[in-house]
Amino acid sequence: MKPLLIDETNSTPQVIFDIKNSHFEIKGCSRPENVRHFFLPIVEWLEGFCTEAPLHVEHFKENPVVFKFKLSYFNSASAKFILDILLLINKIYMSDINTAIDWFYEEGDEDMLDVGTELSEMVDFNFRYIETKM
């Protein structure tokens, strides 16, 4: 699969989904002008990955798929799509792919930690929580 690479802007996060380099990351602030326009390519890429990944289970045994969420802020419309993304990641995990979710939050930003735990419960997937100093 071709990597999905989206540059960061003031209102949209950087997205790197790159199987070859085992790099899966969403980083920055998310309040897109058109939330569907921004997130649909990400959802579609993951749907493609859900289909293809089970064909390469051996590859992912040695190269775990670790999705890193490094969001400084996301609005309520983005939350809807982040939930969709997490559900797809859970689907990847359910197809025996070695998968993890690292949820980053800034020191002192308890709300980002709390929303991470809420999303984790919603999708029934244990996140690893990583505090960062910024």
Binding site: V35, R36, S76, A79, L83, E118, E121
Partner: peptide
């Protein structure tokens, strides 16, 4: 609120204008 937020996030659809109704 936390429970209500989760339920709404799971069940509500985005409006045509792109709002999640969760603001």
């Amino acid at each position: 609120l936390s429970e209500m937020f989760s339920l709404n996030l799971m069940n509500r659809k985005l409006s045509e204008k792109g709002g999640a109704g969760l603001g």
